[in-house]
Design a protein around this nucleic acid. Structure first.
Lengths: 117, 117
DNA sequence: CTCATATGCAACCCCCGAGTTGCACTTAAT
DNA sequence: ATTAAGTGCAACTCGGGGGTTGCATATGAG
């Protein structure tokens, strides 16, 4: 219920943290992997990547801070998964913002007319 | 033509710089203002905000680096505007990623079933 | 010409993000 | 009981991001 048609205002800037969380290659890869597979342990997420396990852990915690991921210890390993709730929320933000951009894009295209861009 | 169904892979991480560029409140506000109005001078963009003119300039240059904005000097002022091309590209990224999330969200929801989240 | 505007440049500051390494600890496995 | 796997913690390095201030410069206004 928070916000709806707030693009032109400035209140939607709350999405900044989410963008920031996605503004890193390593993190984006992790999100992608968690998107494709079920809950994964830190060790699994570290495999393949080129950063240390600690780095991966930090990224996961970063995602947790913005509410995009959660974890739970099972035996000796900690399993991480994305949070549907927040993910849907983020998806909503993206959609809303890109919708706002549509108008801007049209306006810009009209403004430059024949010009390249 | 670059990428299309690349969510599950890892090549789409090229979107990271764009997310990073949007991962800052101040910059997000600037983008919003440029979205709503036509080309604006640095002075205009500085009005209202709480950061110095130099800060605004730096943010604009940051947006320029990722190709989201461009500028041109007119008389004694420099007018900034968003680049429709890149903006549309970013919009595409957002759409694609959020589409990829849809599947993940469904899977997550199914996985936790009755659970909260 | 003179003054106020709108910027550009450069030097600095402070803090945090990304990544690493070393060591301790807990929990399978054998 | 031993060993190996999977983490957690803490200390540290490096570099760049976000902001600021001061000064120089170009240009519209009177």
């Amino acid at each position: 219920m928070t916000s709806s048609r707030s693009i032109g205002g400035g209140a939607f800037t709350g999405a900044a943290p989410i963008f920031a969380a996605l503004g890193d290659r390593t993190r984006l890869k992790i999100v992608a992997r968690l998107c494709g597979a079920g809950p994964l342990s830190i060790a699994r997420l570290t495999e393949g990547g080129k950063v240390s396990r600690q780095a991966v852990t930090k990224h996961l915690q970063a995602l947790e801070r913005v509410g995009l991921a959660r974890s739970s210890r099972i035996g000796r390993e900690r399993l991480w998964e994305l949070k549907a709730r927040r993910l849907a929320e983020a998806r909503h933000y993206l959609k809303e913002i890109s919708t706002g951009w549509d108008a801007a894009i049209d306006r810009l295209r009209a403004h430059v007319e024949l010009d390249e861009d």
